[in-house]
Design a binder for these strands. Sequence first.
DNA 1: AACGCTTACAACCGCAGAAAC
DNA 2: CGTTTCTGCGGTTGTAAGCGT
Length: 407
Amino acid sequence: MARSGGGVDGGGGGLKKGPWTQAEDKLLVDHVRRHGEGNWNAVRRETGLQRCGKSCRLRWANHLRPNLRKGPFSPEEERQILRLHGLIGNKWARISSYLPGRTDNEIKNYWNTRLKRRQRAGLPLYPPDIEREIALLRAQNINPFADADGNGNANGSLPPPLLYDASNPFARPPTVPSPSGSATASHSPLINQNYPLLNQMQGMQVFHLASQQSPQPVFHQDSGAALGGHGSFVYSGLPPLPTRPQELPSNQFDTSSSGGGGAGLLESLLLGDDHLLPRHNTTMVKVSSMPALTYREPAGSRLPVHGAGSDSDDTSHYLPGEDMHHGAKWNFTFEDVKPAKRRTPSEAGISDMFGIAPGSEWFSTCGGSTAPSPGPSSAVTDDEFNLDMQQFMSLLPLSIDGHSWNA
DNA sequence: AACGCTTACAACCGCAGAAAC
DNA sequence: CGTTTCTGCGGTTGTAAGCGT
């Protein structure tokens, strides 16, 4: 909301701060219609919008771009967040790339609120079954198949396992030699502050790793279906943890529903019953300009009001138009940009999901919307990360053994 | 109704890396 | 090759709204 009352910033060269008005949104959307994403600093020059490029980008990414999914997180999404956060920590952009239509900011806010609440209550951050999942995967990531170079695959066609990635919260502890050039120094308490689950698991001897004994199967049997329906526990493979992605290009758009070439086995693995997990397509194509925005005013022609400082000025419509660049059509609407402030608590759904008794307050707030996203978010990662992460996510169970875990 | 607390959310900031010059 | 600009990310903050008392 408004941070400074929406006034003109004195120190920013006349740049405005605070909540965006409808007129500003319109200017920005119109600019993106014409020129596509990127070059955000040009927005100010070309539209007269008194906002810095950074602010424009943020506004677009978090509120104006198409296919944003607003509203409460579905139970599936919340579970995804938990899993992904347990795996990669506060990598909101990465996490959001696996929650189509969700922004990193949204997820970050969700997590921080939840974190604050649980910390205040002295509760652990993750449900135990999520912890077990992560523990198992982490244990598996001590890769018995790793070669001398520490790579989990011999052919070298795949990226090195994240086991040695500095960003990997589940990387091998420092006692295990890591390959040259890796950032073993990252295994520091400081780093682990970002990975609360990892901290919880420190010193946790979950599996008898030395003997490579298969761990207690904590995965639901159904998880095997994600591996092409073989219906067995997942423990033999080493699910590739995400590699560090490259910087995420801002102007990438999902242009097809296919996974793109090169997915091969991974794609086939993903074609199991894991359809419940919203995914991005693995092929993202950078475009130089945006498809046409087809602007629809919501019923009642009420544009969202962002904060108290919102104007009630220009509410003119964008007419549906042809893309001057690509001839594509692009539905665009302001509706649902502003969700209900309060989410209706729906602990039943999430409790079922985790097998947690109602009242265990894992999710104090969660909406009931499980409707599929209208489309992929523009937030993407590189293909490798996508593929690896999708494969990994596909290995995770969609259902968890019921148990009582009262927080 | 008023008040205080909590939650959800928008938006800003600083930093870092990539790209452009 | 150094500098500047652009972009993206994660952290943080301010505020409106919901809720309980």
